[in-house]
Amino acid sequence: MQFRLAEHDGRQHVAAAHHGGGGVVATAFQSEDEGSLRHGPVAHGSGAGNTRPAAEQYGPPMRPVLLVTRPAPDGARFAEAVARETGQPFDVLQSPLIGIRPRDVSVAERPDALVLTSANGAAQIGRLQLSGLPAFCVGDRTAACAEKEGATAVSAGGDAEALIATILAQKPLGRLLHLRGAHSRGDVAGRLSANGQPCEALVVYDQQPESLTSDARRALAAEAPAVVPLFSPRTAALMADQGPFRGQLHVVAMSEAVAKEAARLSPASLVIASSPEGAAMIALTSRRLEYLLSG
């Protein structure tokens, strides 16, 4: 199997890999499991900037750009998984809208177990000397990161609601500690405490807003379609605040709440993942790219 990955003007050009039989079997990146899909509401943008160019209607389709706004290294992992899933050439631009900055904090009293709602929170376990504890994790990716940091992880396999339900069903004894970012949804610690399970929250990292790169801005003003996966309402709002954009945007939203903010971008299309999980986002982003590549 062979593949190649070239760079030009800040973009990664993903070339599909082939085997001896001549069929496209993969791209340069690795995959994750595909989730189920459902299409969300479609928001049609106004003006010439959101009209499909004639070259796409009557000639070969323009190669789309995947604009990844997640912080590193999660953004790179997501792009890799989408590339493998899609199996066709497209360009990748990395332009994180949020930068993760660990806070200089310490844990006064070692808890009996941890609550983790992100891989970024899980990544702080080692430096806070919390290895060896049980960790209740929102999903598989967070659980994998927690295990790497020395915790014994239990994955709720879903969102904050599933995490809270998992913890309350298991009724762990003792005090829980939720390691979270400065911007966090769901009030997990408060809801657990209100339901009889003591839990405190500790902000262990900040999520600083970042500006789009010059390459990203050029892509969002070009004729080639740009596929933009958005994973949180805050990220969608941060991107909308930096608009408007003249290009043809195809937004993939992780939830209804994300889609509500993303509608401010006046995208050419807006679809919503079947569940708020990475696998569903990978699958739906891949389908958007395949649709655009098919012309």
Rank of each mutant, 00 (worst) to 15 (best):
E200I: 02
G158E: 06
Q248M: 09
T69A: 02
V203Y: 04
V25Q: 11
F136G: 02
L97V: 12
E261P: 04
S106H: 12
V251G: 01
E161Q: 13
M281A: 05
N120P: 06
T213D: 01
P172F: 07
A79H: 08
L179Y: 10
S193I: 06
A113V: 06
H250G: 07
P102C: 03
N50Y: 01
G22C: 10
E85V: 13
K148D: 15
A146M: 11
G22D: 10
V251F: 06
H8V: 13
G22I: 03
P225Q: 03
A113G: 11
P60H: 09
V227Q: 03
G47F: 08
E223S: 11
P61W: 00
Q88T: 07
C145H: 09
F3W: 12
T69L: 12
V115W: 06
V42P: 04
V42K: 14
L176W: 03
E261T: 00
P276N: 05
L289D: 05
M281S: 01
V228E: 03
L220I: 05
I125V: 14
Q208M: 10
N50H: 15
P172K: 10
G190Y: 02
V115L: 09
M62V: 01
L173E: 13
A119M: 09
V14H: 05
G132E: 06
A16F: 07
G59I: 02
A169D: 15
A224T: 11
A153R: 11
Q12S: 14
D187M: 02
S232I: 07
R287D: 12
E149H: 13
P53S: 01
K260S: 10
V271C: 14
S106D: 08
A146W: 09
G49D: 04
R246M: 11
V68C: 06
A240L: 08
A182L: 12
S294N: 13
P198T: 09
L130K: 05
L192P: 00
V227F: 03
L163A: 06
A48L: 14
P209S: 00
A162M: 09
R103P: 00
G243C: 02
Q30H: 12
S193D: 02
P244Q: 01
H39M: 13
P229R: 04
Q124D: 05
E34N: 12
A237D: 11
P134E: 08
K171R: 15
G121T: 04
A237M: 08
G157N: 11
A240S: 14
R246P: 04
T235W: 02
D9V: 08
A81Q: 15
E147H: 13
G174P: 04
P41S: 12
A257W: 01
A226P: 00
D206N: 08
R234H: 08
A253I: 04
T142E: 08
S118R: 00
H19N: 14
E200A: 15
T69E: 00
R218S: 13
P111A: 09
G75M: 06
T142P: 06
D74P: 03
V188M: 00
D241F: 01
